[in-house]
Simulated scan of single mutants.
Amino acid sequence: MRKVAHGDKQAFSALYDALAPLVFGIVVKVVRDRAQSEEVAQEVMIDLWRQAARYRADAGSVTTWAATIAHRRAVDRVRSAQAATDREHAQAAREHTT
Results as ranks from 00 to 15, higher is better:
residue 50 R to L: 12
residue 50 R to T: 06
residue 10 Q to N: 14
residue 76 D to Q: 12
residue 35 A to M: 04
residue 97 T to P: 00
residue 13 S to P: 01
residue 49 W to G: 09
residue 69 I to R: 13
residue 35 A to Y: 04
residue 92 A to T: 12
residue 9 K to L: 09
residue 93 A to T: 05
residue 91 Q to T: 08
residue 62 V to A: 02
residue 21 P to S: 08
residue 83 A to V: 03
residue 91 Q to W: 09
residue 17 D to P: 02
residue 24 F to D: 07
residue 76 D to W: 03
residue 71 H to N: 13
residue 45 M to N: 00
residue 30 V to K: 05
residue 10 Q to S: 15
residue 46 I to Q: 09
residue 86 D to V: 08
residue 98 T to N: 10
residue 51 Q to M: 14
residue 26 I to C: 06
residue 27 V to G: 02
residue 11 A to F: 06
residue 10 Q to D: 14
residue 94 R to M: 13
residue 18 A to Q: 15
residue 45 M to G: 02
residue 98 T to F: 12
residue 28 V to A: 01
residue 59 A to C: 09
residue 22 L to D: 13
residue 67 A to S: 14
residue 63 T to L: 04
residue 18 A to D: 15
residue 19 L to W: 03
residue 93 A to L: 12
residue 72 R to C: 05
residue 4 V to Y: 13
residue 32 R to Y: 01
residue 60 G to P: 07
residue 77 R to C: 01
residue 31 V to T: 00
residue 15 L to P: 10
residue 27 V to A: 01
residue 64 T to H: 08
residue 94 R to W: 06
residue 41 A to E: 04
residue 10 Q to I: 12
residue 74 A to S: 01
residue 28 V to T: 11
residue 53 A to N: 14
residue 16 Y to F: 15
residue 64 T to L: 13
residue 8 D to P: 14
residue 61 S to D: 10
residue 72 R to N: 15
residue 19 L to F: 08
residue 86 D to M: 06
residue 82 Q to Y: 05
residue 74 A to T: 02
residue 76 D to P: 02
